[in-house]
Design a protein around this nucleic acid. Sequence first.
DNA 1: CACCCGTGGTC
DNA 2: TGACCAAGGGT
Length: 294
Amino acid sequence: MTDHTALHRTVLGWYAAHARELPWREPEAGPWAVMVSEFMLQQTPVKRVLPMYAQWMERWPTPAALAAAPSGEAVRAWGRLGYPRRALRLHAAATAITEQHGGEVPTDHAELLALPGVGEYTAAAVASFAHRQRHAVLDTNVRRVFARLVDGNEYPPTATTAAERRTANELLPEQPETAATWAVAVMELGALVCTARTPDCAHCPVAADCAWRLAGSPAYQGPPRRGQSYEGTDRQVRGRLLAVLRAADHHADVPQAALDAVWPDPVQRARALDGLVADGLVQPVAPGVYRLPG
DNA sequence: CACCCGTGGTC
DNA sequence: TGACCAAGGGT
């Protein structure tokens, strides 16, 4: 039950002075704008999200507008943002919001969590950033900041732990409005200063209190964090296949031959295509003919 | 819970 | 240059 007022004031002051101006943080950005940004930002850098976000919000400014479009159009508009299943899930979330929540993004955390593509982080982020509620928001940035500041470790554990949730809740300001700003402020600190590779400790507002710094910035000791291989994987094949489908006109059939051209190994190619169909990203319309889903 | 799921930028 | 990283979620 320590008093964290000084820490709150320091971080909130830093945020007030250094926060980026992002469209989903503008006063006119409602819950839908926040939700769209959160889907796009899942494992994708802000810089690459910005242009796609602008296009998306202009085309589908409400959940109902997106729900009225074919899911394949969402996949097509997703472009090269990566992880196209996110586009499908965002479309499914828009449909659920339209059909079950009167077209309004839910305010209740549990209802948010029940939406397709909304997990622990995104539910807390929308409830906090858009609805100004008090929630611990644990993304990769926040987890890294707390790992260093509180635990003295360079990196957080592989998966979010109960101890991390305890820390986040312990440090969360009591007032909901303050907590909401605190959540985005800690995230911003992780994104801009307390970065993964080369943290800018010289400009960190809490460097003097940082357990990791005070311990001499010891190198990461934990288990090796598995890298993400990509060359030669099914994911690469899926990406190439879907690129062909996206490039085709809306409702234009894509012949098997066009898909066969993207990858030499027929076994892996077929497996990747089957996977896309199973995921609902590709629709088989006839033997040897495919398109994005309607 | 370990693994799968895209894409592009960085050192 | 290959490994790492980027506002995760689903299984």
